[in-house]
Design a protein around this nucleic acid. Structure first.
Length: 884
DNA sequence: ACGAGTAAATC
DNA sequence: GATTTACT
């Protein structure tokens, strides 16, 4: 075998003694005269980081707080933009955990079990405003010594408030701090640093907000105007030795060695550490592939423990560590593998919290998988651009670069291939935070500021927690009592409308059934963010719906028995309204202003996106029973007013002679409107309903199949909107999607009624070709596969067994690993069970008749709209015969 | 751990 | 009719 030297790899700097030379036959003497790494104990002390305290002068961004209730000390992690490093600020605050009760303090003091308990500290009297009852309340604050004792002492009180708020959140509230904001240390405390705000933005507050919102708007302005830090960060990705591609290493057991670790830093750091062992070197080094950039620094270790210690050292050099699924895999594996190799806990700069997330001791860890998996981020921040939560899928959407495609297991790769594969992953992970001028990092910083959550929490928690945290913060700041969920339900009751869908809690939106057919020149008008606007306009909030005042009861909410308060401003209405106005009237406009520098415009665009996430989720959370401020009457009031609004608008439009052909929730499809009629309608809605409608789309034509949420529309610019048709659904077989897309392409070119005839002829050909391919088995199994997500583990399907679960069971019986979240690819076969996973199926087993049914339903939706009979299209008896 | 409504396939 | 999935 050819002796390969490391020269090909060492295009970067050669570092110390960790470089070895390898041949395909094993480790040999190094080219550069340095030896192979030994297990060096002195490496261990290297990664222990010093705790740096902030400089006396200078400004730091607040990133995270670790509150230690036992020592009554908060460890505040600050990012110093001048030296790109983390500083710690210890606040020996004396801040103790507590909860509130509605028992007078003297009574509490008589409770010997409480006062005598070792965890008891003292009681204080506090005054809170009870929004549910609209009155002041004097309450007793029971302060405890040990956070764990909150739960113990609570047992003596039937009702306790604020007992479940996390201590570090508590600390942030009580200190009035906002994560993500800029502070300086002064006289032992953190003092906010006010940003410079352009004159015209300050002025616009007067125009944008009404009088009672202005002071709040001014308080919020620094949140959006403080420039974001550009956090220095490094992405990490590890590869674990696996024999087969299917085998997923277990991070808790951590049985196999970590064979490669790649880093990609925002400062240009690019490095791969590779383990040389009998297992990894058996395929040799190989030629470095083109996919491995020339400036990546590759290092070889012959000792896994030394390599992992080096990884820990690098982690500690950076204030922010990025991973893609590091909570579940990479960091978890490193942690357990380190323990397994005899590295002691104190030498591992990671800790795993109760909820399974990994914290790093010095800096902060961001798991981008968790961030991109967040539905609110996916839908509202990125417009549903990516559909799958894999590094490959997300990177290809945002970066246009994919993972390196492997058709072998880690065990079968040469070391060059391994390095290249591993590096690409870490590079993609870093790039997910750097594309579009660090868009994702900016978004995270803004979400921290709006939700008042630490950087790790904002990435790990979902939108309901973000909103909850902002609400709690606002309650405490204003001295409002944070209500108990059961008190909201008791006072406000449950929903009074009934849902159309069984199992849902209340009635939702209206969908108008469209008449089948093709309509030319269709204008779509819609209500600009309908539900948030309703919340603002109608003063909706958990405390204002069904308020305790007699005089408000006449202020009814249409279609319900509910009423809404006239006396007090609703908190939800205020906050949602504030963010809505900021977004629509200020930041959306700023983001489009060409006279501003590019980076400023881009920042304003991120600002309006972050607001969008919040605004759009503000209705949904009040209808979610898991939300601590869950309030069904408030949620159903929103949808009820939505129905009322759209009904009113439709009848007005019809009065005016407009032809409404379809509508869904907040949109109306109008056939052939005169522009002046539209203008009149828009003005009427604004003056009579106090809401804004706008022209959203103009279709050259729309083809309705007659089903709701199911149509094809061609916009004036030729863009085709396909809504709800099976041909577009993710689980339909690829050959059908292809044929369907061809049909769409034909429809795109149709300009007027006459062109339909020609289009129909083309569509006929496409459908026929599709049939023939199936008939003559000119399709691959892949093209025939239905790809359905397994939403639960197979054993949890008890009520019935859908086809994809049957296929999944067959996979398990041959030893394949499938679990909740796996996408099962299966085909329809002639056997008794009727399905087979593609891995086990053969092309000649395919049940053609089942597929013919699918072809029919797919195209029927299109053909219904075009008023063509399917049979007419097939025409010949050839197919009829075929069906038998 | 955001909501409800619609369509389709399958048991 | 109930369950499950994918979509609005």
């Amino acid at each position: 075998m050819r002796q390969l030297t490391l020269d090909v790899f060492l295009r970067g700097e050669v570092e110390r003694s960790r470089v070895a030379s390898v041949g395909s036959s094993g480790v040999s003497e190094s080219q550069s005269g340095v030896g192979v790494v030994e297990d060096k104990p002195e490496l261990i002390s290297e990664f222990k980081f010093e705790i740096k305290e902030p400089r006396d002068t200078g400004q730091c961004y607040l990133l995270s707080v670790v509150y230690d209730g036992k020592s009554r000390r908060a460890l505040v992690k600050l990012y110093d933009p001048e030296c790109d490093d983390i500083y710690f600020w210890y606040d020996n605050t004396g801040h103790k955990p507590y909860f509130l009760v509605d028992i007078p303090p003297d009574k509490v003091k008589q409770m010997s079990k409480v006062v005598g308990h070792p965890a008891f500290d003292h009681v204080e009297v506090v005054e809170k405003y009870d929004l549910l009852e609209d009155r002041r309340r004097v309450m007793t604050k029971i302060v405890v010594k040990d956070p764990k004792a909150v739960a113990v002492l609570r047992e003596y009180f039937p009702k306790a408030w604020e007992a479940k708020i996390k201590y570090h959140d508590n600390y942030i509230y009580d200190r009035g701090l906002i994560p993500g904001m800029l502070y300086r240390v002064e006289n032992g405390s953190l003092v906010p640093v006010d940003p410079e705000i352009p004159e015209d933005i300050v002025k616009s507050i007067e125009e944008v907000f009404d009088e009672d919102s202005r002071s709040l708007a001014r308080e919020w302005l620094p949140i959006f105007q403080t420039p974001p830090p550009n956090l220095k960060r490094v992405a990490l990705d590890i590869e674990v030795y696996t024999e087969t591609r299917e085998h997923i290493p277990n991070p808790i057991k951590a049985e196999e060695p970590v064979v490669s670790v790649a880093f990609a830093g925002s400062d240009g750091y690019r490095r791969v550490l590779i383990l040389l062992s009998e297992k990894t070197i058996r395929n040799g080094i190989g030629e470095p592939p083109e996919t491995l950039p020339k400036d990546v620094w590759i290092e070889f270790f012959d000792n896994e423990k030394a390599m992992i210690l080096e990884v820990f050292r690098v982690i500690n050099k950076y204030p922010v560590l990025l991973t893609f699924n590091g909570d579940n895999f990479d960091l978890n594996y490193l942690y357990h593998r380190a323990l397994k190799l005899g590295i002691s806990r104190s030498e591992i700069p990671l800790s795993i919290t109760e909820d399974g997330s990994v914290r790093i001791l010095k800096g902060v860890h961001l798991d981008l998988y968790k961030f991109f998996e967040n539905r609110a981020i996916q839908v509202y921040a990125f417009g549903d651009k990516y559909k799958e939560y894999t590094l490959d899928a997300i990177a290809s959407v945002f970066l246009g670069v994919r993972k390196i495609q492997l058709d072998a297991s880690i065990a079968e790769l040469t070391l060059s291939e391994l390095a290249s594969y591993n590096f690409r992953d870490s590079y993609l992970t870093l790039s997910l935070t750097t594309f579009d001028d660090n868009l994702v990092m900016k978004l995270i910083i803004l979400l921290m500021r709006i939700s008042r959550l630490s950087i790790e929490d904002v990435c790990r928690l979902k939108v309901s927690s973000w909103i909850r945290n902002l609400f709690y913060w606002e309650h405490r700041r204003r001295g409002y009592l944070i209500p108990l969920s059961e008190d909201i339900i008791e006072r406000k009751g449950t929903a009074v409308t009934s849902a159309t869908i069984k199992g849902k809690k209340y009635a939702g939106a209206i969908v108008i059934k469209p008449e089948t057919g093709v309509y030319f020149n269709v204008v779509v008008v819609d209500f600009a963010s309908l539900y948030p606007s309703i919340i603002k306009k109608w003063n909706l909030s958990y405390e204002t719906v069904n308020c305790p005042h007699e005089e408000c009861k006449a202020n009814r909410i249409p279609e319900t028995k509910h009423w809404v308060c006239l006396r007090r401003r609703g908190l939800t209405a205020e906050i949602t309204g504030l963010l809505r106005d900021f977004r629509v009237k200020l930041y959306k406009k700023l983001s489009k202003r060409k006279d501003l520098p590019k980076h400023e415009r881009e920042w304003y665009d991120v600002v309006q996106r972050a607001m969008k996430v919040y605004i759009n989720a503000s209705y949904g959370v009040f209808g979610a029973d898991t939300f601590p401020l869950y309030c069904p009457p408030a949620a159903e009031s929103v949808t009820a007013i939505g129905r009322y609004t759209i009904k009113k608008t439709i009848s007005k439009a019809q009065e005016m002679g407009l032809n409404i052909i379809y509508g869904d929730t907040d949109s109306l499809f109008i056939n052939n409107p005169k522009p002046e009629q539209l203008q009149k309608l828009i003005e009427w809605v604004s003056s009579e309903l106090g809401l804004d409608i706008e022209v959203d789309k103009e279709y050259r034509y729309v083809a309705f199949s007659g089903r709701k949420k199911n149509y094809i529309g061609v916009l004036k610019d030729g863009t085709v909107d396909v809504k709800g048709l099976v041909g577009k659904k993710r689980n339909t077989p690829e050959f059908l999607k292809k044929a369907f897309n061809k049909v769409i392409d034909v429809l795109r070119d149709v300009k007027d009624k006459d062109e339909f005839d020609r289009a129909i002829a083309k569509i006929k050909d496409i459908v026929r070709e599709c049939y023939e391919k199936l008939k003559f088995k000119e399709l691959t199994l892949d093209e025939l596969a239905f790809k359905t997500t397994l939403s639960k583990n197979v054993e949890e399907y008890t009520k019935n067994i859908p086809p994809h679960v049957k296929a999944a069971k067959m996979l398990i019986s041959v030893g394949k690993h499938v679990s909740a979240g796996s996408i099962i690819s299966y085909v329809k076969v002639g056997s008794k069970v009727g399905v087979k996973p593609i891995q086990l199926a053969k092309l000649d087993e395919i049940d053609t008749s089942k597929y013919i049914d699918y072809i029919k339903t797919t195209f029927k939706q299109v053909l219904d709209a075009l008023n063509i009979e399917l049979e007419e299209l097939m025409g010949t008896s050839k197919l009829e015969l075929f069906l038998k």
